[in-house]
Write a protein that binds this DNA or RNA. Structure first.
Length: 284
DNA sequence: AACGCCGCCTGATCGC
DNA sequence: TGCGATCAGGCGGCGT
C-alpha cells in the first residue's frame, strides 16, 4: 500500500511531466473517487487549468494549479490502498478500474486508477489540516509527535498510524520503524521516554528515506501496463527481480528469521491490523 | 473524549 | 476444477 515513500517517488516522477501542462477533457468514471462528488462539478473545477507544480504532504499529492478567479488552487490526491497515477498515450488501453482520466495535451492523458476505490482526487483540502509533522522535515522529534505519543495508552504501533501524530507512516513502515528502533509494538505510547521517542523518530526518518532512496535509484516504469507487485512497483519495473519488498526487515515476514538476531519474526494483530516484530530485538 | 470497530471496495488466496 | 469464504487495509464516521 502506498505510504510516504511511494507517494514521494510518484510525485518526483510526475512533477516534471505535469508542470506547465494544461488540462483538456476531464472524464470522471467513478464519482465516488472525486470531490465534489458530481462529475460535472469536478470537471468544471479542473478543465482547462494549468499545472504549476506538484508536491507531497504525508500521503497526499498536492497538484498546484494556476490561479483562476473563483476556482480552487489545489487538487488533492490520495492513493488509498490501491491507487496508481500515470500518464499514457490516449490511444492506449485504459485499465479496468480507471476512476478519473483527463487530457494533458500532446496526445497524452493522466490516469488515476484505483481497483478498490479507496483513493480520491479532491478539491477539498481540509483533511490536510489534521496532519502531523512531516518526518523528513524535522531532524528532531517535533513537539506534536511527542505530545501525540504522551497523551495515549494505545500501543505505540497504533499511534504511529494516526496521521495527526506523524504524517505519512502506514502499516508497513510503522512495523519497520519500530524494529529499527528496537521497540515492542505493543508498548503503550505514553510509556516511552524522551530517549526512546527520539530513537523512534530517527528510525522513522531512516526507513522512509531509505525507501525513497531505493525507489529513486531504479528506472521508473509508468507505462501503466501490467500489474506487477501491488506493494512496491512505485519505484521501478514491476518485473524487476529486486523489489523493495525484499528489503523489508519484518513486514510480511512472519516465521522467517530476523536478519539481526535470527529469532523468528512474529505476526500479531493490533487495532485489527497486521503487525510484525522480532521478539528478541524488540522488547518493552 | 479517547478509543474500538464498522463499512467501503476488489482481487488474491484458501479450503473443501 | 470450481466456487464461496476470507483476508488485505487507509480512513471517515459512529457508538460507547
Amino acid at each position: 500500500m502506498p505510504e510516504l515513500p511511494e507517494v514521494e517517488v510518484l510525485v518526483r516522477h510526475l512533477q516534471p511531466l505535469l508542470t506547465g501542462r494544461r488540462v483538456g477533457f476531464v472524464e470522471v468514471r467513478r464519482t465516488k473517487s472525486v470531490r465534489p462528488q458530481t462529475a460535472a462539478e469536478f470537471a468544471r473545477a479542473l478543465r482547462n487549468r494549468r499545472f504549476t507544480g506538484l508536491r507531497r504532504r504525508g500521503k497526499f499529492l498536492l497538484f498546484d494549479l494556476a490561479k483562476v478567479r473563483g476556482k480552487p488552487e489545489t487538487l488533492v490526491g490520495h492513493l488509498g490502498m490501491t491507487g496508481r497515477m500515470f500518464l499514457q498515450p490516449v490511444r492506449d488501453v485504459l485499465p479496468k478500474h480507471a476512476a478519473v482520466v483527463f487530457g494533458v495535451g500532446q496526445g497524452e492523458r493522466f490516469v488515476f486508477e484505483d481497483p478498490r476505490y479507496f483513493g480520491r482526487l479532491s478539491f477539498d483540502a481540509s483533511p490536510l489540516a489534521r496532519l502531523g509533522a512531516e518526518p523528513l522535515d524535522h531532524p528532531d522529534p517535533p513537539e506534536s509527535f511527542v505530545a501525540g505519543l504522551r497523551a495515549s495508552r494505545q500501543p505505540v504501533k497504533v499511534r504511529l498510524l494516526d496521521q495527526s501524530v506523524v504524517a505519512g507512516v502506514g502499516n508497513i513502515y510503522a512495523s519497520e520503524a519500530l524494529f529499527v528502533a528496537g521497540i515492542w509494538p505493543v508498548v503503550p505510547a505514553a510509556r516511552l521516554g524522551p530517549q526512546r521517542i527520539a530513537g523512534l523518530w530517527r528510525a522513522i526518518r531512516e526507513v522512509l528515506s531509505e525507501a525513497i532512496a531505493w525507489g529513486s535509484t531504479v528506472p521508473l516504469n509508468w507505462s501503466g501496463a501490467g500489474g506487477g507487485d501491488a506493494l512496491f512497483y512505485y519505484g521501478g519495473d514491476p518485473e524487476a527481480p529486486d523489489t523493495y519488498e525484499e528489503r523489508l526487515r519484518v513486514y510480511d515476514r512472519a516465521g522467517e528469521p530476523c536478519g539481526r538476531c535470527g529469532d523468528t519474526i512474529q505476526r500479531t494483530v493490533l487495532g485489527s491490523r497486521s503487525t510484525f516484530h522480532c521478539p528478541r530485538c524488540q522488547r518493552q
